[in-house]
Amino acid sequence: MSHPLTLDDIRRAPKVLLHDHLDGGLRPETVVELAEAVGYTGLPARHPAELGTWFRDAADSGALERYLETFSHTVAVMQTREALERVAAECAEDLAADGVVYAEVRYAPELHLEQGLSLDEVVEAVLEGFRIGQERAAAQGRPIIVGTLLTAMRHAARSLEIAELAVRYRDVGVVGFDIAGAEAGYPPTRHLDAFEYMSRENAHFTIHAGEAFGLPSIWEALQWCGADRLGHGVRIVDDIEHLRAEGGGSEVRMGRLANYVRDQRVPLEMCPSSNVQTGAAPSIAEHPIGMLRELRFRVTVNTDNRLQSGTSLSEEFFKLSTAFGYGWDDLEWFTVNAMKSAFLPFDERLSLINGRIKPGFAQLKWATQ
């Protein structure tokens, strides 16, 4: 490689996104327009640029709970079928414009019932929006596949109902289940019946764990609940110790949980910018992703909430490339990790890896030599 990777270079790469929240990815102008349409007067700013800045500043608190408060404004304008369709369609278009070829976008249907929609109507509206967005992206020469994850809120008591909803729509675009929300005080084992139901139905699920609460959250998500993936999982580094070696230097000693996560190739859905905003990591340069990459954990790179973090998947990769000196081989490694870990059938994952991802990176490597 003759020069460091630029943001424009990275935008051309075929990328895979596993952890992106629908209500955390709205365009600021869409929030303003939808607020006017439904008469929502609670926005902290009425100009799109000012509103976008407010979301980023409010999310930069260093606390997960404060970060989550920003969603009250986006959820407030996502209460009608028309709004949900628009937001989902624009999400698919925006991701495709950023070079994403496969994405799993999650949202909590239970948060969109204030204007009388049923859970099924919410899901159908979002699926229709993604269908429209995928068609528009394909017409622009940027085909993308979007799968949906249905999320239950961990402080509520509707997880089994949402899990059943995910299974009901799994053949038409819903690829899995998730729980999200503040971790402290709401362990994943509170929702064990939902996870057991998903397992009995041979269905996939991920769990937000190890972002704000630490190793117990990760242990419960894996050993009690049977999660396929970990949403964030950044606190697994608390089970990894750096020791001074004889003659200088250092060696790494991993605890039993860290060894298990690596040995079992448990995918970690890491979101660098978001992790810094919520205090799960001190900075991009000090983000545990660097060490976990070196130790060959199944690490993936994600956006979490593009609006609150003012980011895109390309920008996340660019920040990591700048901080850790990553080149095309590293970015391809992260991308293949993500595609291997997607909640798609094996043959479809393999088709995307061999048909779009590897050829796309090979072409970029050749073009930037």
Rank of each mutant, 00 (worst) to 15 (best):
D9K: 08
I10T: 02
A13H: 14
G25W: 02
V32E: 02
T41M: 13
G42R: 05
A49W: 12
D57P: 07
A63Y: 10
Y67R: 03
L68S: 03
S72V: 14
H73T: 05
T80M: 04
L84D: 05
A96P: 00
G99D: 03
A108P: 11
L117E: 06
A125D: 09
E128F: 13
E128C: 15
G133K: 13
A137F: 04
A137K: 00
A137S: 00
A138N: 06
A157Q: 15
A166R: 13
A166D: 04
Y169C: 09
G173Q: 04
F177A: 03
D178C: 00
R190K: 08
S199V: 14
N202V: 15
H204Y: 00
H204E: 03
H204C: 10
F205C: 05
F205W: 06
A209F: 10
G214M: 06
A221E: 01
A221V: 04
D228K: 13
R229E: 04
G231F: 11
D239C: 01
R244D: 14
G248N: 11
Y260T: 06
Y260K: 09
Y260E: 08
D263M: 13
P267D: 00
P267A: 08
A285C: 11
P288Q: 11
M291Q: 15
N302Y: 03
N305L: 09
S314H: 10
E315N: 10
T322V: 13
A323F: 09
F324L: 10
D330M: 08
W333S: 13
T335W: 02
I353Y: 09
Q363E: 14
A367T: 01
